[in-house]
């Protein structure tokens, strides 16, 4: 690698446009939000920066603490389900015949190139009262009822007098299912990268020495894939915590997350300083998670996200 002093002209030509864009259109806007978070509203659109910490104090009020707490546990649960689902998938892909691997990986990656909005919207059609899940359940119910009628049990109404559709939309279940559905690929990829690199002879050694498959998994594979698990958890947890669209479309009024509260401050509630404070709380959590990962994985380069 060349020292930048050897060729200053090229160095500046390459670095200035991108750096300037990053500073002007990313770092300055973020700093503005940070400054605003210490401001106070003095009119409908006027904000004075008084360096008050009131906005952060307000974030610790009961109402907001509940939302923050709820966002955290919804994200934790969703991340956990992602891990449980993604691990076997990553495992099967890395033990699949090599000609199948690229195809299987593509199958995992492809959905997250598809618009987040469209994927979330597709779930509405699946979950709503007159959606595909309830349609299938109703069909099963009818068949079951017909069988019960056939064997002469119809009058006992064993499975209810009529089909009751499940309400799966506009609650926490829908939000968690949505997050799992949307962010699952984020979990598969780091796990796959890790399991793929795993020296398979460790597994063979463990099995040869008489350990069972489950013992081999918990004592050998699981600890060795810890870096991948941590990467995956952070890659899912960060966007899950900040998700706005999924709870907005799939969650009802009582399944709101921190992202929805932030959005409301900037749109309908028009309280920018408070919204800014909430955004920065979210940023701090994100940075904390990234720092934790850097600490645990001991990675050096920021570009290898």
């Amino acid at each position: 690698m060349e020292n930048w002093k050897n060729n200053k002209a090229v160095f500046w030509v390459l670095s200035v446009p991108g750096t300037a864009w990053l500073v002007v259109f990313f770092l300055i806007p973020l700093s503005l939000v940070w400054i605003l978070s210490f401001g106070e509203k003095s009119g409908i659109i006027d904000i004075v920066i008084t360096w008050t910490s009131e906005n952060y104090v307000r974030a610790s009020e009961q109402v907001y603490l509940e939302v923050i707490w709820k966002s955290v546990w919804v994200s934790v649960l969703a991340t956990f389900f992602c891990l449980v689902i993604a691990y076997p998938i990553a495992f099967v892909i890395s033990f699949a015949p090599s000609k199948w691997k690229p195809l299987l990986l593509l199958a995992v990656i492809l959905p997250f190139w598809i618009n987040l909005l469209i994927r979330t919207y597709a779930l509405i059609a699946v979950f709503r009262t007159r959606g595909y899940v309830n349609f299938t359940l109703e069909w099963i119910w009818e068949k079951l009822n017909a069988i019960l009628g056939f064997v002469g049990l119809a009058e006992y109404e064993l499975i209810g007098a009529r089909f009751e559709p499940l309400s799966m939309l506009y609650n926490n279940f829908a939000v968690i299912a949505g997050i799992v559905y949307v962010f699952m690929p984020f979990m598969v990829l780091p796990l796959y990268a890790n399991i793929e690199k795993l020296d398979k002879s460790y597994l063979e050694a463990s099995l040869d020495l008489g350990a069972s498959q489950s013992r081999t998994f918990w004592s050998v594979v699981f600890p060795l894939t810890m870096p991948g698990i941590i990467s995956g958890i952070i890659l899912v947890f960060i966007p899950a915590l900040g998700s706005f669209l999924i709870p907005d479309l799939l969650g009802g009024t009582n399944a709101q997350m921190i992202g929805n509260v932030i959005e409301r401050q900037f749109k309908s509630a028009n309280d920018w300083p408070f919204g800014s404070a909430l955004s920065f709380l979210l940023m701090y959590v994100t940075f904390g998670a990234l720092a934790l990962r850097a600490l645990l994985a001991g990675r050096k380069s920021g570009m290898e996200v």
């Binding site: 690698m1 020292n3 930048w4 060729n7 990053l22 973020l30 992202g259 979210l282 050096k300 570009m303």
Partner: peptide, 28 residues
């Protein structure tokens, strides 16, 4: 191509738009 002082920090700053929650960038 280049080695320059503060490169790790520079790379970290460049990765920020990738890792910052979308909603934070939106409000920014």
């Amino acid at each position: 191509r280049f080695r320059f002082p503060g490169k790790a920090a520079y790379e970290g700053a460049m990765a920020l738009p990738i890792v910052v929650p979308e909603i934070c960038m939106g409000v920014a």
